[in-house]
Amino acid sequence: MTPLRQQMVDAMQVRGLAVRTQQTYVDALARMAKYYGRSPAQLDAAQIEAYMLHLSKDLRRSFSTINQVSSASRFLFRHVLD
């Protein structure tokens, strides 16, 4: 487990997020990191939005999938990388 992932998991546990929510957030960020080939901590808001647009337009993912990426990214930047 990478140090960033461990920090994310620790922050979610401290805030009482459900285990399934933790897994969903970690998975969403891992997919985004794989898409860009780098850590989500190195991405800016425009790149995250572009990724969500890619999910919507190109891959035709549901709103809930896109919302997971949004929520996970928001959590990462507000509670882990602040």
Rank of each mutant, 00 (worst) to 15 (best):
M1L: 02
T2E: 11
L4I: 11
L4K: 05
L4V: 03
L4H: 03
L4M: 07
Q6D: 13
Q7C: 06
Q7T: 03
Q7N: 12
Q7K: 13
M8I: 14
M8S: 01
M8Q: 12
D10R: 15
D10V: 05
A11K: 15
M12I: 10
M12Y: 11
Q13G: 12
V14L: 14
R15A: 08
G16R: 06
G16A: 04
G16E: 05
L17H: 13
L17N: 11
V19F: 10
V19M: 04
R20I: 07
T21G: 01
T21K: 06
Q22L: 05
Q23S: 13
Q23K: 14
T24Q: 11
Y25V: 05
Y25G: 05
Y25H: 12
V26C: 09
V26I: 12
D27P: 00
D27S: 11
D27R: 13
L29W: 04
A30M: 03
R31C: 10
R31F: 04
M32D: 03
M32Y: 08
A33Q: 11
K34P: 00
K34M: 03
K34V: 10
K34L: 11
Y35L: 04
Y36I: 04
G37S: 02
G37I: 06
G37H: 01
G37Y: 02
R38S: 01
R38I: 00
P40N: 05
A41T: 00
A41D: 06
Q42C: 00
L43C: 00
D44Y: 04
A45R: 10
A45S: 06
A45W: 01
A45L: 08
A46H: 07
A46V: 10
Q47A: 15
I48T: 12
I48A: 10
I48D: 00
E49N: 11
E49Y: 06
A50E: 09
A50Q: 13
Y51P: 07
Y51M: 07
M52V: 11
L53T: 14
L53D: 10
H54W: 09
H54M: 04
L55H: 02
L55P: 08
L55C: 08
K57M: 05
D58Q: 11
D58P: 00
L59M: 13
L59T: 03
L59F: 00
R60W: 01
R60Q: 14
R60H: 14
R60T: 10
R60Y: 03
R61C: 13
R61E: 02
R61M: 12
S62T: 13
S62L: 07
S62V: 03
F63H: 08
S64I: 01
I66M: 12
I66Q: 14
N67D: 09
N67C: 01
N67T: 03
Q68D: 06
V69P: 02
V69A: 08
S70R: 15
S70W: 15
S70T: 12
S71A: 15
A72N: 10
A72K: 08
S73Q: 04
S73L: 02
S73R: 05
S73T: 15
R74P: 00
F75T: 12
F75I: 12
L76N: 07
F77G: 06
R78V: 08
R78L: 14
R78T: 15
H79Y: 14
L81S: 06
L81V: 05
L81D: 07
D82I: 02
D82E: 15
D82S: 09
